[in-house]
Design a protein around this nucleic acid. Structure first.
Length: 332
DNA sequence: ATCCAGGCTCCTG
DNA sequence: CAGGAGCATGGA
């Protein structure tokens, strides 16, 4: 069993505790927690990390594997102002060790997921004078969202999460993961792995219906997976994705069946970590705004966008912190 | 029981 | 083209 350890020094303030707290209630299908405080999840790196945009690789029926699965185990030194993360990366039984270019990809992906290179200082300075937001921003200082393992994972999970309560969305995600991708075994435990597009593409709508997906949602997921797997849809690698402006994603992705504005906003937040998206249609955000601003009734999408104009260029973070404010104290 | 959950498509008038 | 029904299920 091969293992390597990587160390990260995130830009402070960095509060890994709050980040894990979030994983206790949302988007945590792939996470497991050790009694000693370590957080474990699997990642997949692809040979074709150049992205699928110009790739001439075959269709989803191909059997040759073009990816590699890893287990990551992350611990934190509990220091918000001198943070350090240590990540053990464990290979699958019998796998050859990582090449140096694979190693670079893994480090890049880990830094992305844990958002170690994001400096939130200007956000905190801007919000310090905001009567309503300052207390919340202060309370969650150092918090940033743990990002999804890939853009594809992010998109599928977000589509599944549309309109449903978080608990049911989680069930659907867990069932899909279990159905489509074999788990990663380590020390007698099975860790779930998010399926690759090819794996989802080989399923059909009826199989998802059996997992209690709605007919539409089952179609969206299968459709999207097949378009990505057979390269009908240009799907960027992480590296390509980071260099594209938000607006282009709205143009490209909203043409995908099942993907609307809210979904693009959420994928840009949770898949790419973009700082300035405002998912104003989000019911949770609207509830949080109602509470924090003490409004008599739930604000409309338009009212949220109106309010949110002063949140630029940090709308994503205001949204994230407002979401946290809704559940604060619930899991302490 | 009824309504709503971290929306979107499709159909109606 | 604005507005509303329908979706799957479970918890309040």
């Amino acid at each position: 069993m091969e293992m390597a350890t990587y160390t990260f020094h995130p830009i402070p303030p960095y509060n890994f505790f709050h980040m894990l707290q979030r994983l206790k209630y949302a988007r945590h299908e792939l996470y497991r927690f050790d009694p000693d405080g370590a957080v474990i999840r699997t990642l997949t790196i692809r040979q074709d990390e150049a992205g699928t945009c110009e790739s001439s690789a075959g269709t989803w029926q191909d059997t040759g594997k073009r990816w590699r699965r890893l287990l990551t185990r992350t611990t934190w030194n509990h220091k918000v102002w001198e943070p350090e993360l240590r990540v053990d990366v464990i290979l699958e039984e019998g796998d050859e060790s990582l090449t140096s270019s694979e190693e670079k990809l893994v480090v890049r992906q880990l830094a992305h997921i844990w958002m170690v290179d994001v400096d939130l200082t200007p956000y905190y300075e801007q919000m310090a004078s905001d009567l309503r937001l300052a207390p919340i921003v202060k309370k969650f200082e150092g918090y940033r969202p743990p990002l999804d393992g890939s853009l594809f994972e992010s998109m599928i999970k977000t589509i599944i999460g549309q309109q449903l309560n978080l608990a049911f969305a989680r069930k659907l995600n867990e069932r899909l993961i279990q159905l489509a991708a074999p788990p990663f075994f380590w020390k007698g435990e099975a860790y779930p792995v998010f399926p690759q597009p090819e794996e989802l593409a080989s399923l059909d709508v009826a199989q998802l219906r059996a997992l209690q997906f709605s007919q539409r949602k089952a179609e969206y997921v299968i459709h999207l997976a097949r378009s990505v797997a057979n390269h009908e849809l240009c799907w960027p690698s992480l590296e390509e994705a980071l260099n594209k402006p938000d607006e282009e994603y709205f143009l490209e992705w909203q043409t995908i069946r099942g993907v609307g504005r809210w979904t693009v906003e959420c994928v840009l937040i949770f898949g790419l970590g973009r700082p300035d998206l405002l998912p104003a249609a989000d019911i949770g955000l609207r509830n949080a705004v109602r509470k924090v601003y003490q409004l008599p009734e739930q604000p409309t999408e338009e009212q949220i966008r109106e309010l949110g104009r002063s949140w630029k260029p940090w709308s994503s973070y205001v949204t994230l912190y407002l979401w946290e404010s809704l559940v604060q104290g619930q899991f302490s």
